[in-house]
Structure formats: C-alpha cells, structure tokens
C-alpha cells in the first residue's frame, strides 16, 4: 500500500495534541479560578480572553487550520471577521446609547 492519499501533514501529531490538551485544561482551571477574584469588569475580560485563546488553540491544532490550504484559511478567517463585525457594530450602538454594566 502506498502513502495515504489524503493530507500532507506529518504523522507525529500525538505529542502536540497532548500538549494542547494539557494547555486547554490549565486554561479552563485558570478561568474558573479567576472568577473568584473580584476584578469588576476585568472578570468578564479575563474569562473571555481565555475562551478566545482556547478557541484559537482548538481551531489551529485540532481542526487542522494550520494544515489547511490558503483559500480555506481565508474563508474561515472571513467567517470569523463577519461574526466580529456583528459583535462590534451591535455593541458600538449599545455602548453609545444605552450602556448598562458588566
């Protein structure tokens, strides 16, 4: 049998996956721990930043965005940016007109 026809990525993925796994676990525990420290609006910022980091790790390593072709990376990026536009534009409206508290 010849080489697998699919994908060009190396087959030594397991150590990488385990490192990412450990990082995700540590980040989760950090975000739970941070929520017990009173930081006002900082609490929301910290847990969301951690969630964003975990998402990027999952996308990049588990979902193989790092091996994806450039057109695929651009498409995924475009989707994320579109989502970002929705959040930023909507929140810009609320921030400037009827902001509550976080």
């Amino acid at each position: 049998m010849s080489e697998p026809t699919q994908h060009a990525e190396p087959v030594t993925e397991v150590p990488t996956y385990l490192i990412v796994f450990a990082t995700l676990i540590v980040l989760t525990l950090l975000s739970v721990g941070s929520s017990f420290i009173p930081m006002g609006v900082g609490n929301a910022a910290v847990v969301l930043l951690i969630a964003l980091t975990k998402t990027l790790l999952t996308l990049w390593f588990f979902m193989h965005v790092r091996y994806a072709s450039r057109i695929m990376q651009l498409t995924i990026g475009a989707g994320v940016i579109t989502l970002g536009i929705m959040f930023v534009m909507t929140l810009a409206d609320y921030v400037s007109r009827s902001w509550g508290s976080w």
Partner: peptide, 15 residues
Amino acid sequence: WTFLFPLLYLVNRHS
C-alpha cells in the same frame, strides 16, 4: 461550550 461556560457559569462568582 468554550464560550457558554464562562458566560453562563462564571458571572460574578466572587460576590
């Protein structure tokens, strides 16, 4: 879930 968890469970746990 990565976003659901902090947004739903981790609001103001310190109070």
